[in-house]
Structures are given as C-alpha cells and as structure tokens.
Design a protein around this nucleic acid. Structure first.
Length: 618
DNA sequence: AAAAAAG
C-alpha cells in the first residue's frame, strides 16, 4: 500500500532533519531583495549568484581531497591494464605521441592533477543537504522489475558493476558517484552496448539512463588507444556524439559524463546555443572525445567546419523520441545522414527514452543497424513512486487552486528548502504571467522557458535547485530529462496535449527511487487527454476519479477503445501488467511497441533473461 | 497550437 504524500514528505524531512535543522530559509520567505521582474531581467549584469558561489566556496577542498584520492595514488587507471590507453601518457610512460586516443591533447593532459575534480560539489554541498542523496537509487523499488528484450542474440544482463569490464578508472568513478549496483536499465543495456550492438532502450524516468550510455562510450574510447585522428588546425574530431533536445539537459549530461570520465583521459565537451560560441570553440580546440550537444549549435559548428563527425564511433540520442519528432527530425537527419558521420553499422548507435511511440520507432530504425530493443519497467514512467492526482479546475480557478496546493505543501512538513514545486504551463507567456502573479502574492518563484536568455534560464534552474526559489514555473523545456533532487511536487497547471509529455513532466519527481506527488488541473479543454490519462493512472494503480472515467468514455474516439489514434495512442503498452484490463489490448500494444517495423527481420521476442511478466509493480 | 533548437 502506498504511503501518503504527506507521509513521504514527513519522512524525507525527518531523514534530513539532522542536517537541515539549522536551515532557516523557509519556503515562505520570498527573496524579494534579489528578485527581478521578468521585463527587467535582460538588464541584469552577468553576475554570479549565490548558488554558484555555494558550490565554489571550498577552494581549499579543491584538488584531490574530496574523494580520498590520495589512497589511490598508486593505482592510476589502467596501471595494470596496458590496453586501457591513456594511462600510458601518465608520467614518463607517455611516449606514444599522437598515437594515443586524442591527437589534440596528447601532451596536454599529462598533468591530470589539473583536471578539476567534478566530485567536489557533491562532497561539500550535496552531502550537507542529505546523506541519502548520493547513495542514490532506492533499489528495492527496482526489484523484480519487468524487462523485455528483442533482437538477435541479446547479451545477458549483469548484476553488478564488477561483472563488467569497464576498466579501473571508470570503476573508481562509479565508486565516487556512490553507485553501488547498476539500475535495471544499466544491467541490461551496458552489456548490449559493450558488445557493440545498436540499441533502442525504453526505461522509466529517473532510472539511470545517462550512465547507461555513458559508461560503454567512455570504456570503449579508453580501449581505442590507437585511433588516429586527422589533424585539422581548426577542426575537432570527436569520437562520440550525444544529442539531447534542450540546452540544460545537454549541460546536465555533460556534467555527469565529466564525473564518469574523471582521470580517464577521455575529454568531454558540451556545445549548445544561447551561449558565446567562442568559448565553446576554445574548448573544442583543446581536444574532444565525447561531444554533448543540442542540434542547432552543432549544425552551426558543422557548417563552419569547426567539427567533423567523420571519426564518430558512438552516437547516442537521449530523449530519442523527442529528437525524432516533427520539430527536430530534419536537423537530426542532417547531422546523422547528411554530414560526414559514418553510417549505421559502422558507428554504434544508442537511442534512449522513457517513451517511444511506434511511429517514432519506425523513423528511428533508419539510424540503427540490427538493433536490440530493450524495455525496462513499465515503459512510460516510474509511476509507482509518484502519487498522481487529477483535479477538475476551471481555467479561472487555477491560480487560487495552485495557491491552496502550495500552502498545503508548506504545512505538510516542509521545513528546509528541500521540498521543491515544479509547475508546468503550456505557453511561455503563461509562464511569465503566472510567475509574476506568484511573486505579487508573495511566493518565491522563478520561471524557465525558451523566451528567456540562456543566462536567465540557467540562473532560474540554479535558484530552483538550491531552494532559493522553491517554486519553478516552466514550459516543456523542463519536461524532459532534468534531474532535480528534492522536487516533491509536480503541478500540471496546464495539462499537455500529449500523454507522453505528461509522463516526462511528472517524471521530474519520484527520481532515483524516491517518492513524489504529481497534481494535474483538468478541465474541458483537456478532454482529448482524458482517456490516455485515465488509462495511465489506472495502469499505475492510481486512484482515478469517477468523473475522469466518465470524461474518458465520453471522448472515446471512433477508432475504438485503444485510446484512439494519433499522438495520444498508448505508447508504453501494458505488456508487463498481469491484469485482464491490460491483456485485452496486449496484442495492439505489442504492435505499438514493435510497430511491425522489422516484421520480416526476425525481431521476435527473446525475453529469456528478465523475470517476464512477474512484477512487484502490479 | 505550442515548445524546443542558430542568430
């Protein structure tokens, strides 16, 4: 049985009580002194704000003290593994010159001690907030998770990181990240990727997808020590490309990848729009193995020949279904098919998302070669950890209703700043206007959307993460992938039109095995979402209001009971549910999953490794 | 129809 949201907030509050008790900056205190109205924000000087300083304060802790590094001074990565590449550059061993993995910085990174320690933030700021945080994933929530694989000769999953030959350096970083054992998606996808196979992976929000595609890439690059890259004075030749749909997500992936690749010699660079391109050029000139990027800026750099993709061995698309939807597909096609990237089959391609509609899968198969399809958990969301509520709220009542929710949340045990509320709205204008209204009413809120400058966007995100403004009003720019600890409540102030967007939005809470609450405001304008929403909630064992079910049956489409056609089809399917309600449509949903796309190619289910249809989640 | 992504 489910604990109530208030309970879970109470629990986490008491978990944190020891360390957070002295924190007096409550939710209720609007930070008016630093608040700037939206229309005045462009005049802000490029100042560093407190959250940033918070992270950089302990300069004395910079360097190698944070993770107990000195104890490992004698076992540099690869010290006992000559095949692990760059270790040879360390100290006096580096006599290979340009035959190493990165011709551009072969001589530069000998002094690895100059590589900033990406773990200092964790050790100082994050741990102070919550000891629990970095021990991360609540693995009990992942026990007996259903898994399905299909494709030729699927490599078996592993149960521990130790079973995987990732290399000493990477293993050490995994320990520094305090990852104790792999999440389900990692257990399955890492062996697949290490075997060199292309992969299309669906896994719940917050289940560790980033590491799942980063580890094999980093490990693979470390092995390719003799990769000879062309020498172009101004052109960078990355070996791996990771694409994501928003700038903030690209940044987040970059920051994660930096941790994973610390002291491996593998260089990670991020590039995205809205930020000065010169700085990014300089970074690229210093050498890049893994490039993380948003599509627009990458195309720009490709057209200026600052980047060549001809050495790409690994291509990963995060939020792959978004990357291939109408808005992005032409750009992705250009990058993948019309520039100088090696074709599928030559490079290794990995697609990851929590949702994967059938029609997008069909598109995606253009980029893949003999790929393995992997579905981990109830595809669509980590729903059991998220308590979902739907309330009927008229348009004109939404604001006061939101105010009630925030007050209720405040009273139900938010003592520190670690209980954050993320409010999704449909439009950028709506975001500004709601944020302004919240401000006027004394709520410490900020907003993130595509009409704000990149500086404003990143500042808003920092301010939210730090708890300085524990309410964030966002458009769908924040719907996918962002990993924000302590988001206790996601409010769908305006529901999206696509149920997949809903899945991603609520996935901003209930991360890494923690619980969360998601509240949606539903009214006549959302009738097209009634059925898919009711179905999703029911599948996740949520309480579905009777009025929503009535709405759902009223808006049944002529295509029949499956939720209609088009964008609101059920894309996650009920393959893992054991209940009759799901079985009824299991055939249709199986078709949804696999789209019949490779019907002649022998892509049957093999599914012999997972626990099949047994699931603690049902 | 909106949002995102180049400037």
């Amino acid at each position: 049985m489910r604990t109530s949201w208030a309970d879970s907030v109470d629990n986490s509050a008491s978990e944190n009580a020891a360390t957070a008790a002295s924190d007096s900056s409550g939710l209720t205190r609007p930070t008016r002194s630093t608040y700037v109205l939206p229309h005045l924000r462009n005049r802000q000087p490029p100042s560093t704000d407190p959250p940033d300083r918070l992270h950089s304060v302990p300069s004395s802790a910079n360097g190698r003290v944070g993770f107990g590094g000195p104890t490992t001074g004698l076992c540099w990565p690869g010290g006992s593994r000559p095949d692990l590449g760059r270790a040879a550059h360390n100290g006096s061993g580096g006599g290979r010159g340009r035959s190493g993995w990165s011709t551009r910085n072969g001589g530069w990174d000998r002094g690895r001690e100059h590589e900033a320690n990406p773990f200092v933030d964790d050790d100082n700021a994050e741990q102070a907030i919550s000891e629990q945080e970095n021990t991360g994933i609540n693995f009990e929530a992942y026990d007996d998770i259903p898994v399905e694989t299909s494709g030729d000769t699927v490599p078996p999953p592993v149960n521990t990181f130790a079973e995987i030959d990732l290399g000493d350096a990477l293993n050490q970083n995994i320990r520094r990240c305090k990852y104790v054992k792999p999440t389900p998606v990692q257990r399955y996808s890492i062996p697949i990727s290490l075997a060199g196979r292309d992969l299309m992976a669906c896994a719940q929000t917050g289940s560790g997808k980033t590491a799942a595609f980063c580890f094999p890439i980093i490990s693979g690059i470390m092995r390719e020590q003799y990769v000879q890259r062309p020498r172009g004075a101004r052109t960078a030749y990355p070996l791996a490309l990771i694409l994501s749909p928003t700038r903030e997500l690209s940044r987040q992936i970059h920051d994660e990848a930096k941790k994973f690749s610390y002291q491996t010699g593998v260089k990670v660079v991020v590039t995205y729009g809205g930020a000065p391109i010169n700085q990014q050029w300089r970074e690229l000139e210093r050498g890049v193995d893994i490039l993380v990027a948003t599509p627009g800026r990458l195309v720009d750099l490709l057209e200026r020949a600052r980047i060549s993709l001809q050495m790409i061995r690994y291509l990963a698309l995060d939020e792959a279904d978004r990357m291939l939807d109408m808005g992005f597909e032409p750009q992705i096609r250009k990058i993948v098919e019309q520039m100088d990237m090696p074709p599928q089959g030559v490079r290794q391609t990995m697609l990851f998302s929590a949702t994967f509609p059938k029609e997008i899968q069909r598109l995606a198969s253009d980029f893949l070669s003999n790929y393995i399809f992997l579905a981990v958990g109830r595809v669509g969301s980590s729903t059991d950890l998220i308590v979902q509520r739907v309330e009927f709220v008229h348009e004109y009542d939404k604001r006061s209703h939101l105010m009630d929710l925030i007050h209720a949340q405040k009273e139900s045990g938010m003592r520190g700043k670690q209980s954050l509320t993320l409010v999704f709205v449909e439009t950028k204008k709506g975001a500004d206007s709601l944020e302004h209204w919240l401000y006027v009413n004394g709520f410490p809120a900020t907003t993130i959307h595509g009409d704000r400058t990149q500086q404003e966007r990143e500042k808003a995100l920092r301010s939210f993460k730090s708890g300085k403004t524990p309410i964030l009003v966002a458009t769908d720019v924040a719907a996918r992938g962002l990993d924000i600890p302590h988001v206790a409540h996601v409010v769908n102030f305006d529901l999206p039109n696509d149920i997949d967007d809903y899945v991603h939005r609520i996935g901003r809470t209930g991360r890494a095995g923690k619980t969360g609450l998601a509240t949606a405001f539903f009214n006549e304008g959302n009738s097209s979402l009634a059925r898919p929403l009711a179905d999703l909630m029911q599948e996740a064992n949520q309480e579905v209001p009777a009025w929503l079910i009535r709405y759902a049956s009223r808006t049944r489409t002529s295509h029949g009971g499956g939720g209609g056609s088009g964008r609101n089809r059920r894309s996650w399917g009920g393959r893992f549910g054991g209940r009759d309600f799901r079985r009824e449509n299991s055939f249709n949903r199986a078709m949804d999953y696999h789209g019949g796309a490779k019907g002649s190619g022998g892509y049957g289910f093999s599914g012999g490794y997972g626990p099949g249809v047994t699931s603690a989640w049902d």
